[in-house]
Simulated scan of single mutants.
Amino acid sequence: MPLNLIKLSVGTETPETLEVFQAQRKRDHGVIFHQTRMFPKRRDEIIAGGSIYWVIKGQIRARQLVTDIIRVEDQDGRSMTRFILDSKLVLVHNRRHRAFQGWRYFREEDVPPDLGENDSLDHDLPEDMALELEKLGLL
């Protein structure tokens, strides 16, 4: 069974702003990736079909398939880890999640389901208001 990760998407407001950032990274580097210091001990389980789940503004909002995990060096020669990501960002049912540092393994039983074709987050409400109502359990 593939292993998933969870990570805060710092600096993004919505899944759409994450897509814009990643599109620029793909133009600049030819691939979408997230770079971090720690290398996962369970690499093979992750690249066997696992995803990285993105926490945006306190909510798990989207996921991306992790296609590879490689070691690279930064500009100062320090060893870094690069999670190579699929270009498709899959929206998931929003779920609250507290802030944390770095990335974490994400247990299968905690993973929110993907949004299906007939699912919608469109509430005819401003996104900030819809998210606040979701946090309160009213939507």
Rank of each mutant, 00 (worst) to 15 (best):
G102A: 10
H123C: 09
V10I: 14
L115G: 07
V31S: 01
Y53C: 02
K88A: 15
R71T: 11
K57R: 15
V20G: 02
R78S: 02
D86M: 12
G49C: 07
D122R: 05
M1H: 11
P113R: 14
Q101N: 15
V72A: 10
Q64K: 07
L133A: 07
T14F: 01
D114F: 10
L133C: 02
L125Y: 06
G58Q: 01
R98N: 13
D28T: 03
V20Q: 06
R71E: 14
L3E: 04
G102Y: 15
L139C: 08
E16D: 13
H93C: 04
K57G: 06
H97L: 01
E109K: 13
M129D: 05
L18G: 00
E134H: 09
V55I: 14
L138F: 04
E134K: 01
G11D: 01
Q59F: 15
R95M: 13
S9F: 07
I69K: 08
D128V: 14
S9W: 05
I47D: 01
G30N: 05
H34G: 04
E132K: 12
H29C: 03
R96K: 15
F39S: 03
S9V: 10
V111Q: 09
E132C: 11
L139M: 11
I46T: 03
F100M: 12
I6R: 05
H29A: 08
L91R: 15
V90R: 11
H97M: 13
S51M: 02
I84E: 13
K7W: 05
T81W: 13
I84P: 06
L131C: 08
V72H: 01
K7S: 05
R95L: 07
K57H: 05
K26H: 10
E45I: 02
W103T: 03
I6V: 14
V55D: 01
A23K: 07
R95I: 00
L131N: 08
N94Q: 10
W103P: 03
G30T: 12
V10F: 11
G77P: 02
P126M: 00
R95Q: 15
F39R: 11
R42A: 06
L115Q: 03
Q64I: 03
H93F: 07
F83E: 01
I60P: 04
T81M: 03
E13M: 03
D86V: 08
R98V: 12
Q24D: 10
L133N: 10
E127F: 10
R61P: 00
Q24A: 13
E73P: 00
F33K: 04
Q24N: 12
I52F: 07
A99L: 08
D114G: 06
H123E: 08
V111S: 06
S87H: 11
L85G: 07
E127A: 07
L89S: 09
I52H: 06
E19P: 00
E132N: 04
W103V: 10
A99C: 01
R43L: 11
K26E: 09
D128R: 06
Y53D: 02
E73Y: 08
N94G: 05
R27S: 05
G50V: 03
H29N: 13
N4H: 14
D76M: 08
V55L: 05
L5F: 00
V66G: 07
I32C: 07
K88L: 11
P112Q: 04
R98C: 04
